[in-house]
Design a protein around this nucleic acid. Structure first.
Lengths: 131, 131, 131, 131
DNA sequence: GTGGTCTAGACCACT
DNA sequence: GTGGTCTAGACCACG
């Protein structure tokens, strides 16, 4: 999987990394149980410090999206993902609410907004994406 | 309008402030041309630093959501909001994309996700502006 | 509160730090809402790197034993502690089980073991401890 | 005896192995003088590295829980277990103390804690050695 | 070779 | 001055 980072962005690198990996799993490019590169190799590949990668992995592990297997290294969580927990539901809404509010303020209709969301949703999850 | 801040949150206070004001305008609780409290009074009201309120106002002004007059003070922008600019469209998608990706990964269907979005949308824009 | 660290121990410094702070709260030496030293000052006080202290604080925050307040800095969680969650119950038993097994193997009777536990319990929680 | 290992756990495999064997002896499933599998066969049985099994056995020997003979192989120590030495007492308390402190902090009463301990104690030492 | 831990030093965002 | 982020380099435990 190709990782694209924006060093100028104000979102931390480890967050960008998390997002990319999450999107990779969501899109099916990374499959359950599949190995991820080691902290060191990924770090050198994308040109960041190993601690930065480590932080991303650690947080992904905490959310149970990946596992650190003592023998196989880091792998995508094989037992399926956590599902819609109450905590995530809250987090999701607190992330969504400001975006929706700003869109309303700019006069974007519900229909247009839903269409944008649907477009992104299918863009991520459609399997006809080159990898 | 009542401002609710979470001092423990990892979102900066100035961002929370911006979000609350944006939601206030989006919901119609704050109308075009309506005055906002001065930096000083708002800061003392909600118990935060002057700079914090100032930063929120400055950023809101940059996005043309409010106007800052030397004498009239701070008012909601009277000429209507910017609408869907290309820049905002990009920003919007970059905010939405990670949320949607994570939701897909947790197995939330497009229908459920759209329903959540719609719920928040109507919750914000509903005219029951009690309080 | 006085922090005692054993640099030779094989338990990581950040774990020792966590344990000491947990015991401080449990014993009542650290009260709800009370401020803890800043990452930097504590680090220089006990002669370790700021990242080590930071890691301890971060983990304590995750367990909701402390809060990072944007204005007051780091404080003991004011709203009381999490209580006996199912997750903690599992963690507790997985910590206890090996100790108990080894004690059984060494021929320590249930009564003796309970007495040891009770002794430690009262030692920690008794308020007649100098601070 | 069946060995259950968790490759995702943060407790090292050799420690898990030790704990399982200790619990086996404590519960009476493994009797004094009884043979344990050789390093090689156990390693291949449970699918771990030779060194890992070796380390577990070595440490168990150091604590005098097992004996390693050149020819007879590995056996549970036939002369009985070490008993409550001063060193073990210290080790035991340093293991117990953090667990007890955290439980106090979570508001678990002494009675409840003792009951949990007693439950685990009897669970391990109960003679229903099915399997 | 892997992840985990620790140190040292630096910059930035926030208040 | 606070915590958050990132880098660089080192050692160790584990397998």
């Amino acid at each position: 999987m190709i990782i694209q980072l924006d060093m100028q962005s104000d979102t931390p690198i480890y967050t960008q990394l998390m997002n990319q990996i999450i999107e990779g799993i969501a899109s099916g490019k990374l499959k359950r149980g599949e190995s991820l590169p080691s902290v060191r190799s990924l770090a050198s590949d994308i040109g960041v410090n190993l601690h930065t990668v480590n932080k991303a992995y650690t947080l992904l592990k905490q959310e149970e999206y990946i596992q650190v297997h003592r023998q196989k290294g880091v792998v995508v969580h094989p037992d399926g993902m956590p599902g819609l927990t109450p905590e995530y539901s809250i987090k999701q809404q607190s992330q969504l609410r400001p975006v929706i509010a700003e869109s309303i303020l700019r006069g974007i209709s519900l229909e247009d907004f839903l269409q944008t969301v649907e477009h992104i949703y299918t863009d991520i999850s459609s399997p006809e994406r080159g990898l």
